[in-house]
Write a protein that binds this DNA or RNA. Structure first.
Lengths: 215, 215
DNA sequence: GAATAATAAACCGACGGTCGGTCTTTATAA
DNA sequence: TTATAAAGACCGACCGTCGGTTTATTATTC
């Protein structure tokens, strides 16, 4: 049956369905027909909005990154926060959180597929790095961080963390993960020239994520 | 026409062809039929050796990693080298080099595909990290490195470097790459507790790679 | 001379994508 | 206001490709 809707509305319907399937089953395993069935539209309709399956994936990733971006910018622009507080909040928001969008990251860090994975990682880093670099510069003024290359260093940190903790890349036991998290914390402090223990809060996020209870 | 060969010989023929195509066109863009045509065998033969296309990719990656592994182990086991010399050589060998296998990395770091990319990165890191961690431990004894978590830290470094310099993830101008390389050098020194400038040799490898001539 | 490995080749089904055309909405001119 | 035309949204049959299967035949090996 034919149902016509506003461009933006239909677009978001498709994006919503695509996102769900991509997350649950992975990009490669998701069929365009899956999406069509869910949204109850025809193939023609789908290709009216996207020029290819990959184009739809790009749009899904883009939408999520834009959301994360506005979250991060809001935190970075808050004049009442110290640089370190901003860092803490941006990291928590960008990683797993209780927000509705949080599941994205959670699902993403699974071996399901590769392309979606890759695009979202690079997109996230490209988006977050400049924002966080500014925060680090603020931290340098406040005297809590000391680094000569804020942008390059935060890129490096984001890239390294992603890869090391990304289930799609490595499979690790909980103990292995814990030792990597401990090392990561110390390494971030080293790279940013932050005081020892100042990034220990990551361990809390981490325990929340993995559901670990030991100390 | 029917041609029968020894198992290992045919296997390597297929692997060679697959590797070439995967590198040149990417995994997704390579057709099993491409490989069949090149090796001049039938589908039946291919599936006699591999249970799936992905299985063949895994084998390709595995073969290359094994080669890199024996190179790295040979360097790490050389009793005449200092830890820092070993690090230098392992890095040069594993990255782009003039070796025949070197093209692998070169081709790999291109946006062509994702799956192959991912598998080779994680495989390389998983293989290299323990070997290099031992070298770092040696360096600690020699007093040139100082790090509390050798294994985790070298994993982090490898992961971060790969991602930042991987053409498949980001597209950067030569200037952007140069500033990232400078920052990377300093960051590695910080993480390993090595003296300033001790990893400047990376800049030479880097210039060789990119063909940059400026200082 | 069976049994098993190796190869061939026809075949299958699913999937991404195309295409000609239809229905709906919106803008415009009479 | 209404006729009309253009634009936008949508349909679904169809197609080519591709990974993978099946069946059959030819070499090896013990």
């Amino acid at each position: 049956m034919r149902v016509t809707k506003k461009h933006a509305a239909r677009l978001n319907e498709i994006l919503d369905a695509a996102e769900q399937f991509f997350m649950k089953n992975g990009y490669e395993q998701t069929t365009i027909n899956d999406i069509l069935a869910k949204v109850e539209i025809s193939k023609g309709a789908f290709y009216h909005y996207f020029k290819s399956k990959e184009d739809a994936m790009d749009a899904v990733v883009e939408r999520i990154i834009r959301q994360m971006e506005s979250d991060a910018r809001a935190i970075a622009a808050d004049p009442t926060l110290t640089a370190h507080q901003k860092m803490q909040r941006i990291i928590s928001t960008a990683n797993i959180s209780d927000s509705s969008r949080g599941e994205f990251m959670e699902e993403l860090h699974r071996p399901t597929n590769a392309t979606l994975h890759q695009k979202s990682i690079s997109g996230t880093i490209d988006m977050l790095a400049p924002i966080m670099a500014d925060v680090i510069a603020q931290g340098a003024k406040e005297g809590v961080y000391h680094t000569a290359h804020p942008l390059e260093t935060i890129e490096f940190i984001l890239a390294g963390s992603h890869l090391v903790f990304d289930g799609g890349f490595f499979s690790r036991t909980p103990e292995e993960l814990k030792s990597r998290m401990n090392a990561l914390i110390r390494n971030i402090e080293l790279l940013l020239g932050a005081s020892e223990g100042s990034f220990a809060f990551l361990m809390k996020n981490f325990r929340k994520e993995t559901g670990m209870n030991d100390k």
